[in-house]
């Protein structure tokens, strides 16, 4: 079986749907994201991702924006 390397969410193009593998952040942030539904194995659809400004995603039916720095810490497949 081919194993894919996980990439940061910030590198995902708009329109693609990916699966969260892990979040590379401190505990506080991790828990906050978890309470908003950002957990391993959750599907994330990237709605908007441009060179500047935050990234817009859809998770569990709600739309969210994440700072670029944040999006770099969220690893997806």
């Amino acid at each position: 079986m081919e194993t894919k390397q996980s990439i940061p969410l910030s590198a995902v193009k708009a329109g693609q749907t990916v699966t969260l593998t892990n979040i590379d952040a401190g505990r506080g942030l991790n828990s906050r994201l978890a309470s908003m539904g950002l957990l391993p194995n959750v599907c994330i659809t990237v709605v908007r991702n441009t060179d500047f400004g935050p990234i817009m995603i859809k998770v569990k039916g709600s739309k969210m924006m994440l700072g670029k720095g944040m999006a770099q810490k969220i690893m997806v497949l």
Binding site: A25, G28, L29, R32, L33, M36, L38, P54, M56, S62, K63, M64, M65, L66, G67, G69, M70
Partner: peptide, 11 residues
């Protein structure tokens, strides 16, 4: 930190 920047965009 500039804020763990996550925000919901309500409908």
């Amino acid at each position: 930190q500039t804020i763990p920047f996550v925000m919901e965009l309500p409908p």
